[in-house]
Amino acid sequence: MGVDLGLKAPAVSVTSTGKTKFIGNGRPNKYIRRKYKSKRSELGQAKKLNASKTLNDKEQRWMKDQDHKISRKVVDFSNIRNTARTSRKNEKNLHTWSFYRLALFIEYKAKLRGIAVEYVDPKYTSQTCPICRNRNHVKDRNYQCSCGFKTHRDRVAGMNIIHAPVIDGVA
């Protein structure tokens, strides 16, 4: 199974049989982050630093809760097979949203069920056609290849992650 982590769809799981599940919705996450950022800015201008820190802690707890819920759904969906492969999307994004923490939650919950997690290089996973292997630049959420293959961009990434080489060659 391949799992693509992202902002608009926090996790997209694709099995080797082609079964796909979009897990979570990035809109509430984006809304909460904007809401708390605005409130922290107001508190910072009012020199209420303790209140700002408390608000930041509240936001982090909310995000952690979302990560737990999403990782549970990913692991529950992965019961179909005993191997799961996930991708750490764009190292710079690890700090803008909790991709790293979500990947860790998926890993430890999968380990509790005896499911192996392998990390792969996410480079070009959402741009490479899983059918003809041509690389296409995607402008929208919908992926379309010259060979006629069409699907959601995150689903393409999940399909490619299934067959991607493991980082460090460790299986």
Rank of each mutant, 00 (worst) to 15 (best):
P130Q: 12
A157K: 06
T83Q: 00
S38F: 12
K30W: 14
N134G: 08
I23S: 05
N29P: 02
A116P: 01
V3C: 12
E91V: 13
P165R: 10
Y36P: 01
K109T: 02
S38H: 15
K21I: 02
L102G: 09
H152K: 08
M159T: 01
A103P: 00
K53A: 12
N25V: 03
R81M: 01
D67L: 11
D168G: 04
Y36S: 07
F149L: 15
T125H: 06
L49S: 10
E59F: 03
I32E: 12
I23C: 03
A157N: 09
S16D: 11
T83E: 06
I23Q: 04
G44L: 13
K58N: 04
K139V: 06
T83D: 00
E59T: 03
R133F: 12
N90Q: 08
T15H: 13
N79Y: 07
K35H: 04
S38G: 00
N29Y: 14
T17D: 15
Q127T: 11
N142P: 01
N29S: 15
D67Q: 13
K8T: 10
T83V: 08
T128V: 04
N142Y: 00
N82F: 05
D76T: 14
E42W: 13
R33T: 04
V14D: 05
D57Y: 06
V117A: 05
T125R: 06
N142V: 11
V166L: 05
G169E: 07
L102F: 07
S13V: 13
M63L: 09
T125N: 03
E59V: 03
S41V: 13
K19M: 10
M63K: 04
V12Q: 01
R85G: 03
Y31T: 10
F105Y: 07
C132M: 04
I131E: 00
K109C: 05
L104E: 14
M63I: 13
R72W: 12
R155E: 09
T86M: 06
E118F: 08
D76I: 14
N50M: 13
H68T: 15
Q45Y: 08
E118P: 08
K53Y: 01
Q66G: 08
I115P: 01
K64Y: 07
E59I: 02
D57N: 15
I80M: 10
R88I: 05
R88V: 12
K48M: 09
V120W: 01
G114N: 12
C132H: 10
N25A: 01
S52P: 00
G114E: 11
I32K: 13
K58F: 09
T15R: 08
A9M: 10
D4L: 04
F149P: 06
Q45E: 04
I106A: 12
R72P: 06
V138E: 05
